[in-house]
């Protein structure tokens, strides 16, 4: 669609984005508030960041969270990519309907259900709740997100690339690894990033599946938030937002730059003809 941008269109876009961003911006601003009272501006200060860095419980939780996110995102990327390949390449196999159901359902499944059911599973198989169970739980739900992201890339992937590799003497598995995987790599990386942030984010499932000694950052933030708003939490949140935003923006700029370069090259090739 490409029409004139009416006044109404502009207003709805501006209002929509203000609604989306204003709370986050305010949160960031108030993390630099000198006053302990979160709602009264007491001048600029970075003291809460210092306080945050001295809070050992918080740092321990952050370390747990990053370990969980790293492991589960990586495992979820492998499993999710396999699931995406299975769904796009094999249109017919026994239980395909159940399989695609299990891939799509976790995307919308209420977290309380996923969390509760996983916990009951771990108890049923007598698995102690540790950081490992959180990793298993996160892998399970984020692999489905990876599968969806990779699948949407795979459906537009030109199968003849892989066939060409085979035609030129490359066995099927090697053809997948040397041709398909590099081409769909951006989607796989995006899937990994998504899985990483989902894990970084999760409170509910982690609360169900983690045991003592494996408190994640969202769990720590949650228990403090319940007691009220503090500038220190604002500071933690700001750091997290900055981290994720930097990652996402950097990734998309890299992506965009390669696209621009590509477009320019295409135009060049066209002129030369």
């Amino acid at each position: 669609m490409n029409g004139r941008w009416s006044g109404f269109n502009i207003v709805s876009v501006v209002v929509g984005f203000t609604f989306l961003y204003l709370p986050i911006v305010l949160l960031v601003i108030y993390s630099f508030n000198a006053s302990r009272l979160v709602t009264v501006w007491g001048g600029f200060s970075t003291q809460w960041y210092g306080e945050m860095l001295r809070n050992e419980a918080l740092l321990a939780a952050a370390s747990v969270t990053f370990r969980v996110a790293l492991v589960s995102a990586t495992a979820a990327t492998v499993l999710g990519t396999l699931a995406a390949v299975a769904l796009t390449r094999f249109m017919r196999f026994r239980g395909r309907l159940l399989f695609s159901g299990m891939v799509f359902a976790p995307l919308v499944m209420p977290e309380v259900i996923t969390g509760l059911s996983l916990l009951l599973l771990f108890i049923a198989i007598d698995l102690d709740r540790t950081i490992v169970t959180v990793m298993l739980a996160h892998t399970t739900f984020s692999m489905c997100f990876v599968a969806v992201v990779v699948q949407s890339r795979l459906v537009t992937f030109d199968r003849s690339l892989e066939e060409a590799a085979q035609d030129l003497g490359c066995p099927p598995l090697k053809a997948f690894l040397t041709v398909t995987l590099p081409v769909i790599a951006p989607a796989v990386i995006a899937g990994w990033m998504l899985a990483f942030t989902l894990s970084l984010d999760d409170l509910v499932i982690a609360s169900f599946t983690s045991g003592s000694g494996a408190t994640t950052l969202p769990m720590r933030i949650y228990s403090q938030v319940r007691l009220g708003v503090t500038p220190e939490i604002n500071a933690v949140c700001t750091v997290l937002i900055a981290l994720v935003t930097t990652g996402v923006v950097a990734a998309s700029i890299l992506n965009k730059r390669s696209m621009v370069r590509r477009e320019r090259a295409e135009r060049m090739a066209f002129d030369e003809r």
């Binding site: 030109d158 003849s160 690339l161 066939e163 060409a164 590799a165 035609d167 030129l168 041709v179 081409v183």
Partner: peptide
């Protein structure tokens, strides 16, 4: 060997 319709260049 085959030359593909889409060329299938890597």
């Amino acid at each position: 060997n085959m030359m593909f319709q889409s060329y299938a260049l890597f």
